[in-house]
Computed example of a mutant assay.
Amino acid sequence: MSHSFVLAAAQFPTLKPENWSQFEQTIADWVAEAVRQHARLLVFPEYSSMVLAGLLPEPMQADVLGQIGEIQRYRDDYLALHQRLAQRHGVYIVAGSYPWEMDTGVYVNRAWVFAPNGGMEHQDKRVMTRFEREEWDIRGGAPLKLFETELGRFGINICYDIEFPLLARAQVEAGAELILAPSCTDTLGGYHRVRTGCAARALENQCFTVQVPLVGTAPWSPAIDVSHGSAAIFGPPDRGFPDNGILVQGGLNDPSWVYAEVDLSRVGRVRDEGEVYNHRHWHDQLGPGIEARLPEVTPVRL
């Protein structure tokens, strides 16, 4: 197992592809660029798959409810594309999350993870935003997962999920040293809420966290019409990490990759030698004889 690797977080733009081939080439070009920078783990944002709605007839592009059903026609190709790229380049890819139909008219927000060996697994978002609940009727999925890979162990908290500490805590107690937070936020306030959640989870768990935003404007889309953010990789503001906890941060709303060398062995060191022991003192906040029930976590090997 390699503890140190280059992580690439995509500030991916809300482009409008003219056809499937153009979308496929765009994703292939982004992956190839990150590979040239020696990235081993590539992470795309929440709902970056929604650019595929630009391939639908114009009336459907404006139908915020109908389009999530219509883009199911692309999902098999979407999986095959990312699986092929992960194998071709020998990397792990977290694809942009997809409104995934479980039963007729029942959707979850699903992020797929692809491994160099052709394996793939997924994490569903657990806590839905008002937009997802009230306008899309997208539902929370289960269970939480711990992804065990050649690079190390990580969890995924999709956007709003990172604002709820017990989700990341459950994954950390299961062994996660890194929490990925693909995001899609249509206001600067939303972006900063996710950012604050990432920084807080890194602090309290003494681990790495990563915010990965969708960026840009898409006037043709009622779902991803405005997306704000900048990618950032956080650690605890403690010994061996930057004083502000920020390893790297991208430019606001600038389509680009943001890279950082992530050494997961630093997680164990700061938990053993830090100025404070947030990770091991977690249960002290509850008081004697009191336990907080954490969500169950399912380990998966990729």
Rank of each mutant, 00 (worst) to 15 (best):
Met1Glu: 10
Met1Leu: 05
Ser2Asp: 12
Ser4Trp: 01
Val6Trp: 03
Ala9Phe: 01
Phe12Arg: 02
Pro13Ser: 12
Thr14Arg: 04
Leu15Asn: 10
Lys16Asp: 05
Phe23Cys: 11
Gln25Gly: 07
Ile27Glu: 02
Asp29Thr: 14
Trp30Cys: 13
Trp30Phe: 12
Ala32Met: 04
Ala34Cys: 06
Arg36Cys: 08
His38Trp: 00
Pro45Asn: 06
Pro45Lys: 04
Tyr47Ser: 14
Ser49His: 04
Met50Asn: 11
Val51Gln: 02
Leu55Ile: 06
Leu56Val: 05
Pro57Trp: 04
Glu58Trp: 01
Val64Trp: 09
Val64Ile: 14
Leu65Tyr: 08
Gly66Val: 11
Gln67Gly: 03
Ile68His: 03
Tyr74Phe: 15
Arg75Ile: 09
Asp76Asn: 09
Asp77Ser: 15
Tyr78Trp: 14
Leu79Tyr: 12
Gln83Pro: 00
Leu85Ser: 03
Gln87Trp: 01
Gly90Trp: 02
Tyr92Val: 10
Ile93Pro: 02
Val94Tyr: 01
Glu101Arg: 13
Glu101Asn: 11
Asp103Tyr: 09
Tyr107Gly: 05
Val108Arg: 14
Trp112His: 12
Val113Leu: 15
Gly118Ile: 08
Gly118Pro: 05
Met120Asn: 15
Glu121Lys: 03
Gln123Leu: 04
Thr129Asp: 07
Arg130Leu: 08
Glu132Phe: 09
Ile138Cys: 06
Gly140Pro: 07
Gly140Cys: 08
Gly141Tyr: 14
Gly141Ser: 15
Ala142Arg: 10
Lys145Val: 08
Glu148Phe: 00
Leu151Val: 07
Gly152Ala: 10
Arg153Gly: 00
Phe154Ile: 06
Phe154Met: 11
Phe154Gly: 05
Asn157Ile: 02
Ile158His: 09
Tyr160Ile: 07
Tyr160Asn: 14
Ile162Met: 15
Pro165Gln: 12
Gln171Pro: 06
Val172Leu: 01
Glu173Met: 07
Glu173Gly: 00
Glu177Gly: 11
Leu180Glu: 01
Pro182Trp: 05
Cys184Met: 14
Leu188Tyr: 03
Tyr191His: 15
Thr196Val: 02
Arg201Asn: 14
Arg201Ala: 13
Gln206Asn: 08
Cys207Val: 15
Val210Gln: 01
Gln211Phe: 00
Leu214Gln: 06
Val215Leu: 09
Ala218Arg: 08
Pro219Cys: 09
Val226Ser: 14
Gly229Ser: 11
Ala231Ser: 14
Ile233Lys: 04
Ile233Met: 10
Gly240Met: 09
Phe241Ala: 11
Pro242Glu: 13
Pro242Asn: 12
Gly245Thr: 11
Ile246Lys: 08
Leu247Ile: 13
Leu247Thr: 11
Val248Tyr: 04
Gly251Tyr: 00
Val258Lys: 02
Val262Trp: 02
Leu264Trp: 04
Ser265His: 13
Ser265Val: 05
Arg266Asn: 11
Val267Lys: 02
Asp272Val: 00
Asp272Arg: 14
His279Arg: 13
His281Ile: 03
Asp284Thr: 14
Gln285Thr: 08
Leu286Ala: 15
Gly289Asp: 09
Glu291Val: 15
Leu294Phe: 07
Pro299Asp: 15
Val300Leu: 06
